[in-house]
């Protein structure tokens, strides 16, 4: 999923300071799962923003809405009938959701309430870790199911650097050395010979080096 974390309240408050009526719009997908911008977080942030305005002796009108999927024009359309009843929109979705709103409601100021972080998986309740960089040319088939692009601090393709210590990365004892994991896994699979195959310089175009990426599925286009 795409992970996110709420921005500092101070920054959010500064964004909406000039406005009296706010739509606070969450998303039912990834940010709900990582507890950053689902219905519950929308409720909490709305409450915090109301408390803040009360503290200033002001009133603010916050409408809480959580869309099924904020990165989908179909669901974003749901705001159309009411949008003229607000002065600004605060989005708790990832950057994709924020931009879908901004693209649809061109006259409306749209602000992000979360920082979009990474594509990650849940390690355990309340803990998410980066697993994929969306490099567009998946290597997992030859690296034993562990991604060196996302999980090696230097995105090395041909093995660990000299800084590995007890299976941990030189940047922190909290971070696993991806290449140690890959090596252990290749050994477990009896595939350690594969390690010595050179991985040539990567073509970064599918990774974004070729400009913004797009998928067009002709069979699905209406």
């Amino acid at each position: 999923m795409i992970t996110a974390e709420q921005k500092p309240l101070e920054e959010i408050i500064a964004y909406i300071e000039p406005y009296d009526r706010i739509f606070l719009v969450g998303c039912n997908e990834c940010v709900t799962v990582c507890a950053a911008g689902g219905r519950k977080e929308v409720g909490l942030l709305a409450s915090a923003l109301r408390l803040n305005s009360m503290k200033q002796g002001k009133t603010i009108e916050i409408k809480e809405i959580t869309l099924e999927r904020q990165c989908d024009p179909e669901y974003v359309e749901e705001l159309a009938s009411d949008i003229n009843r607000t002065d600004a929109v605060l989005s708790m979705a990832c950057g994709c959701g924020v931009q879908t709103l901004a693209g649809r409601y061109k006259e409306m100021p749209i602000f992000p309430a979360v920082n979009t972080l990474f594509m990650g998986a849940s390690e355990s309740q309340g803990i998410w870790a980066e697993r994929c960089r969306g490099c567009g040319d998946c290597l997992l088939g030859i690296t034993g199911g562990i991604c060196p692009v996302a999980r090696c601090s230097k995105s090395l393709f041909n093995g660990p650097c000299g800084g590995t210590c007890s299976g941990k990365c030189e940047i922190s004892p909290e971070v696993d050395c991806a290449w140690c994991l890959i090596w252990e896994r290749l050994k477990a699979l009896g595939m350690e010979k594969r390690y010595e195959e050179l991985m040539e310089a990567k073509d970064w175009r599918p990774s974004g080096g070729g400009g913004p990426r797009k998928i067009v599925r002709k069979d699905l286009v209406l």
Binding site: K40, G43, L44, S47, A48, R50, L51, M54
Partner: peptide
């Protein structure tokens, strides 16, 4: 829930 605590203050 966290929200219950917040609402009490509100």
């Amino acid at each position: 829930d966290a929200l219950h605590m917040m609402r009490a203050f509100e």
